[in-house]
């Protein structure tokens, strides 16, 4: 459904951030994109959704295909209309709008008023807490409620591919699990394909059908979650599991350095 072929992204004409990044997302799947801070995950999503322009970034090489058609030269509005919707990192709800106005803003590309009303009901069905707070100013919601609002707002646009950028960021573990359960349900019930960017590898691997690991602007590892969970590096750096007593001290130092890089 979505294919990134060898793309290169440059910010401000000089800062090369994605260096030959390739990945695929199959229809109906949940695909996880993992990587430490600064690896280029958010940049990858913005390249797909056309949101690089306001940050003075551009796809300078390679191509992005959605349903077989190139989308890397389109503007953000066209890409949303084709069915790709990015839920940005940090939730980014419209703080001075009410919950319901936020949802209606998400439906901007869906002009059918009757359908908008049905969609509101659908979203409130997934997130009953938003229904209770529908007239409340979004800026005063809790972090978890704002994340629900950001996902609900995306649903209002009827995306075929929903891209979520670190939905777990700054949320309590119980809430994170609730949100991941709902993401799973949206994928199964609404048939929405999901590209999930996360630093929380354990949770992401638990819901994903396939996963990519990114470092320094390119994919370094990919595979089914079960397969990745067996990988020693992944176990150590992402899942925090160490296989005791297998390393000599020199390697420990090297690993310490690598770990520092993962965590920085």
């Amino acid at each position: 459904m979505l294919a990134l072929n060898n793309i290169e992204v440059i910010y401000n004409d000089v800062i090369l951030v994605l260096k030959g990044m390739s990945m695929q997302v199959g229809e109906g799947q949940i695909v996880a994109l993992l990587g430490s801070n600064g690896a280029g995950k958010s940049t990858t999503l913005k390249a797909v959704s056309g949101l690089l322009k306001p940050e003075d970034g551009a796809v300078t090489d390679g191509e992005i295909l959605f349903l077989g058609q190139r989308i890397d030269r389109l503007d953000a509005a066209d890409i949303v209309r084709r069915g790709v919707f990015q839920v940005m990192e940090g939730r980014r709800v419209f703080e001075h709008l009410t919950v319901e106005e936020n949802l209606r803003a998400g439906a901007y590309t869906q002009r059918d008023a009757r359908r908008q009303t049905q969609d509101l009901e659908l979203v409130y069905g997934y997130f009953p807490r938003l229904l209770e707070r529908r007239q409340q100013t979004a800026g005063y919601l809790s972090g978890g409620e704002q994340q629900m609002l950001a996902i609900g707002r995306a649903m209002m646009a009827h995306p075929r591919l929903m891209m979520l950028d670190e939905p777990s960021l700054g949320l309590a573990p119980l809430l994170v699990e609730e949100i991941f359960r709902i993401i799973r349900r949206i994928n199964q019930e609404q048939k929405t394909t999901i590209l999930l960017v996360e630093q929380n590898a354990r949770l992401a691997l638990a819901v994903a059908d396939y996963a990519y690991i990114m470092e320094n602007g390119r994919i370094v590892l990919e595979g089914a979650p079960a397969q990745l969970q067996e990988n020693a590096d992944v176990r150590e750096f992402y899942l925090g599991l160490t296989d005791v007593g297998t390393r000599k001290s020199y390697r420990d130092v090297k690993h310490y350095k690598r770990r520092k890089r993962w965590l920085s």
Partner: peptide, 15 residues
């Protein structure tokens, strides 16, 4: 009003 609040987020809605 959405654009007034957060331009990039508004852009991501297709506005």
């Amino acid at each position: 009003r959405a654009v007034a609040d957060d331009q990039q987020a508004a852009l991501s809605m297709g506005i």
